[in-house]
Amino acid sequence: MKKYSIVIFYLMVLLLNSCSSSSNKEKFQETQQEINVYTHRHYAPDKELFAQFEKELDIKVNVVNANADELILKMENEGEKSPADVLITVDAGRLERAKEKNLLQPINSEVLTSNVPKHLRDVDGHWFGLTKRSRVIVYAKDRVTKDQLSTYEALTEDQWMGKILIRSSGNIYNQSLMASMIANLGEEVAAQWAAGILKNMARSPKGSDRDQMKAVAAGVGDLAIVNTYYVGKLLNSPDSLERRVGQQMGIFFPNQEGRGAHINVSGAGVAKYSPNKANAIKFIEFLSSEAAQEIFSSSNFEYPVNPIVKISPLLQSWGTFKEDKLSLSNLGVLNKSAVLLFDQVGWK
């Protein structure tokens, strides 16, 4: 009888096995065309947009949602057998990393080169920015005036001692900001800058970008360094208190006299071993199109990369700004140096 128990166990395994493989077969035996999208973005309007793509081109979109690092790791491990067609991340640094790891392939698409400005895409066409945001200074309107602010570098001055709120260095947006500092000013100055910000911090770094603004509203400090869309999110929060915090914040685009405010993109690339390459290109082209850009960027209160697309009224109200034209590939290349420098100066 003990044999039976083993047999039962074995059957259980087989059953499980057949469940999963039959569902797989179903998926793969379909004659309908499809693409597999690995994405770090998870906004409801994105899904609507994907559905629209499905409808218009009759190509099914399968989505795997996870953190960009994990997706990259997954693609690395899957190698040639990877089902991934498109990788979407919310940071150019990660796209560049995927490129360095040889996970993306160069795409030659006139649609994309005309829709996406040059500094917002990879030189070799491995990836294309799709939405744009800036990492800016927000300030408590009741305590700080615009003319007190000028550049990221000026935040290290003594007048901001104990006034600055910014999240931890584990955060990719801070790493990218730091990478842009290194690219523009060199490692030494960048390290001094990080040490200067650390000295002026109102508290040890913790929480999210939203939390930094809440702390500013509560008077813990006067300034925070955050991504623009988080202000939009606060202003549109279902929580009335968060909305009030958003209203208390002023937005300042730094370095307008110089190189411009640091920007970053969320973007996409075609996977190296993409089984449905043609569809993958169509998909990215679709996302960069005028019709899609408006939804794709506004779903997260971001700026469209396609210059002919209008920005939303909320974003218009923040005014136009000069952006740092540094090629975003640098953010990936210098990411590790940025992390090491953060550790060295002791920015947690």
Binding site: D69, S168, G170, Q175, P205, G207, S208, N335, K336
Partner: peptide
């Protein structure tokens, strides 16, 4: 731990894996 800004052994694992790119 990550949300509260406390660095622990596990956050170290994540950091060296993803930030330092050293699995």
């Amino acid at each position: 731990a990550y949300y509260y800004g406390v660095s622990t052994y596990t956050t170290a694992i994540f950091r060296s894996w993803f930030s330092l790119e050293e699995p």
